[in-house]
């Protein structure tokens, strides 16, 4: 599982270590120097994504940030999806 970094234009650095087996996300760790309030939400995001179909990640990530009272600074839901996909592409 390789860590892939992505620098958000005019934003922060976000990195993902992701692994999928048979189209299902089995491992995911998101790191970086971005801001997310409340901070503990990052664990909830990772737990939400684990075990889900890769094809549905976009919808799941968007739902996650739509429904909850989370503030992102220097990174967006789209950036998370982007870097996770990069990591999956690299490890497949």
């Amino acid at each position: 599982m390789k860590r892939i970094e992505y620098k958000v234009p005019d934003g922060k650095l976000v990195a993902a270590e992701a692994e999928a087996i048979n189209g299902v996300l089995t491992k995911i760790k998101i790191t970086g120097d971005f801001f997310m309030h409340p901070e503990s939400t990052i664990k909830d995001l990772e737990d939400t994504l684990k075990g889900k179909q890769v094809a549905k990640l976009e919808k799941i990530i968007n739902n996650f940030f739509d429904k909850s009272n989370i503030q992102l600074i220097g990174v967006s839901a789209t950036d998370f999806l982007h870097v996770i996909k990069l990591s999956l592409a690299d490890s497949s």
């Binding site: 860590r3 990195a15 998101i30 790191t31 970086g32 120097d33 901070e39 990052i42």
Partner: peptide, 9 residues
């Protein structure tokens, strides 16, 4: 390190 950072990296 920041809350979300990978310390080893």
């Amino acid at each position: 390190v920041g809350y979300f950072q990978s310390i080893l990296n």
